[in-house]
Amino acid sequence: MTHRPLVVLAPDKFKGSLSAPEVARALARGISRRMPGADVRCVPVADGGDGMVDAFAAAGWTRVEVDAPGPTGEPSTAVYAVRGETAVVELAAAVGLVKLPGGRLAPLQASTFGLGVVIAHALDAGARDIVLGLGGSASSDGGAGLLRALGLRLLDRDGVELEVAGDVAAMLGQVIAVDRSGLHPAVSTARFTLACDVDNPLLGPAGAVAVYAPQKGASVRQMVKLEAGLTNWAAVLGTGYAEIGGAGAAGGTGFGVLAVLGAQVRSGIDVVLELLEFTTLVGAATLVVTGEGSLDHQSMHGKAPVGVAAAAKAAGVPVVAAVGRMMLSLGEIRAAGFAACYPLSDLEPDPARSIIAAAELLERIGERIAMNHLPLPRL
Rank of each mutant, 00 (worst) to 15 (best):
A110M: 06
A110G: 08
A110H: 05
S111R: 08
S111Y: 01
T112L: 00
V117Q: 04
V117N: 02
I119L: 10
A120Q: 03
L123T: 04
L123F: 07
A125L: 14
A127F: 10
R128T: 11
D129H: 13
D129I: 01
I130T: 14
G133M: 10
G135C: 12
G135E: 02
S140G: 08
G142S: 12
A144R: 11
A144Q: 05
A144E: 02
L146Q: 07
L147Y: 00
R148C: 01
A149Q: 01
L150F: 00
L150A: 01
G151M: 01
L154R: 09
D158L: 05
E161M: 04
E163M: 11
V164L: 15
A165G: 12
D167W: 07
A170I: 06
A170G: 03
L172K: 12
Q174K: 13
Q174T: 12
Q174W: 06
I176P: 03
A177Y: 02
V178K: 05
H184N: 13
P185Q: 07
P185V: 02
A186M: 12
T189Y: 04
A190G: 03
A190W: 09
L194K: 10
L194Q: 15
A195T: 07
C196T: 15
C196Q: 11
D197P: 03
V198D: 00
V198I: 10
V198L: 08
D199I: 10
L202G: 03
L203P: 06
L203S: 11
P205E: 12
G207K: 00
V209S: 10
V209F: 00
V209Y: 03
V209M: 12
V211R: 10
Q215H: 14
Q215K: 09
K216Y: 02
S219K: 08
S219N: 11
S219W: 08
S219M: 08
V220E: 14
V220G: 06
V220Q: 11
R221M: 12
K225G: 07
K225H: 09
E227M: 10
A228G: 11
N232V: 03
A235N: 10
